Simulated assay, not measured.
Amino acid sequence: MGKRDDDDWIKLRTSLEDHPKVVGMAALVGVDPLHVVGALAATWSTFKKHAVDNRLVGYTPQALNTKVKMPGFAEAMAAFDWLTVEPAESPGTLPALSLPRAENHNTAEARRRAVDKARKRAGREAGAERAAVNATPVASPAAAGESAAAAEGGAGANKSGVIQLAEATTAANRLRAIGMNVHAGMPAITRMVSAGVTPDQMALTAAEMAIRAAGAENNPNWPAIPIDLFARGASAAQMRITDKFYCMLRAALPKVNHLSATILGRMQDAAAAAAADAIAATASGEAVETGTGIMLSRGTRRQGTQPSRGIQAMNALDELRDRVSAGKRRED
């Protein structure tokens, strides 16, 4: 068998069928997501064969729609930032189509990165499985006593690798249920799990960020979005919204690194600002109380004064915690 030519290769993920952008394009065009996957494969193959500097000169959206036999496909692809349309700038020039970020997906270097990434992921998963299998379930009485003492005295210590992997897997499954493309081995998932962020908090924050990014918050042109149902992976029918709005929400979900930075940043801001409030309250002789593990000024939080930045952050965390509790009560 001869060496494969890089020109006959394109990157096509196995998870593409349920990617939020594919689902959204399918809703806009009015076809099954599998038809969109086929049209995308044909489009990317055409770019691979005929594009010069990532530009298909002479192609228009109508020409691409005709090629893939799907009216509205090129417009939907452009709407989700997978296609750039370049109209003819002046008489005598030709229109063109181009792919944003093509160098990340459709080159020989992209192929090498994809293969390396797949190999490393397989290695990590195999290593995690070996660690779980090789974990010793039985210990000597002396060792068991030492372990119990260590556990009692080290409640704030880092969790074991196996437990952390299990929690990261639960969190990743929860985020995938709402449409995010994540897996348990992602560093961002590990950071949130290590910080004590629960899967419910991750999913609710991601849903909140998607609602804002989609422009649905306080927008009269949007229906009311039940954030708790969205965060639990409910369907459009269960949320009582149309497929169009549902696809727009899923397409607006944040990347996992953005989600992690947002959650951990809120926690840090809340802790630092609330601690400063507590110090100020102590210096002024006001009573203080604990709330979510952080000292808060009773007067600032309970009276009608404008809450400080720390109190606002803590109120947001309390609201998130209440949403989680309400969701669990409904499940029970």
Score class of each variant (00 low, 15 high):
298 R>G: 03
8 D>A: 04
161 G>I: 04
27 A>N: 11
142 A>Q: 06
270 A>N: 01
96 A>H: 00
109 E>L: 08
18 D>A: 05
132 A>K: 06
263 I>N: 01
141 P>C: 04
84 T>Q: 01
320 L>N: 01
206 A>I: 10
183 H>T: 13
100 P>Y: 09
125 E>S: 08
314 M>G: 04
2 G>W: 09
258 H>M: 13
32 D>G: 10
286 E>D: 09
45 S>E: 12
273 A>M: 07
207 A>P: 05
233 G>P: 11
44 W>V: 15
35 H>M: 12
208 E>V: 11
210 A>F: 12
126 A>P: 07
148 A>T: 08
189 I>Y: 11
185 G>K: 08
233 G>T: 09
13 R>F: 10
7 D>G: 09
312 Q>W: 04
210 A>I: 00
42 A>L: 13
151 A>N: 12
34 L>Q: 15
159 K>I: 03
159 K>G: 13
260 S>T: 03
267 M>A: 05
121 R>S: 02
217 E>V: 07
306 Q>Y: 04
207 A>Q: 03
92 G>R: 10
203 A>R: 06
196 G>H: 13
281 A>C: 12
332 D>K: 15
39 A>S: 13
299 G>T: 15
265 G>Y: 08
20 P>V: 14
25 M>V: 02
221 N>M: 12
139 A>Y: 07
153 G>S: 07
249 L>A: 09
59 Y>Q: 03
306 Q>I: 05
104 N>I: 00
314 M>C: 10
29 V>Y: 11
168 A>G: 11
174 R>N: 04
174 R>W: 01
207 A>M: 10
159 K>R: 13
214 A>Y: 08
136 T>C: 01
270 A>E: 07
163 I>F: 15
263 I>K: 00
101 R>N: 10
309 R>S: 10
207 A>I: 00
16 L>F: 14
120 K>Y: 10
268 Q>V: 06
151 A>T: 12
217 E>M: 08
257 N>L: 10
93 T>K: 14
48 K>I: 15
202 M>F: 05
131 A>C: 05
166 A>Q: 14
226 P>A: 02
83 L>F: 04
157 A>Q: 12
245 F>H: 13
38 G>Q: 13
83 L>Y: 02
176 R>K: 15
176 R>G: 13
279 I>G: 03
14 T>I: 10
50 H>Y: 02
288 V>I: 15
260 S>M: 12
170 T>M: 05
32 D>M: 11
60 T>C: 03
302 R>Y: 04
198 T>Q: 05
140 S>F: 06
13 R>L: 15
246 Y>S: 09
90 S>H: 11
61 P>I: 14
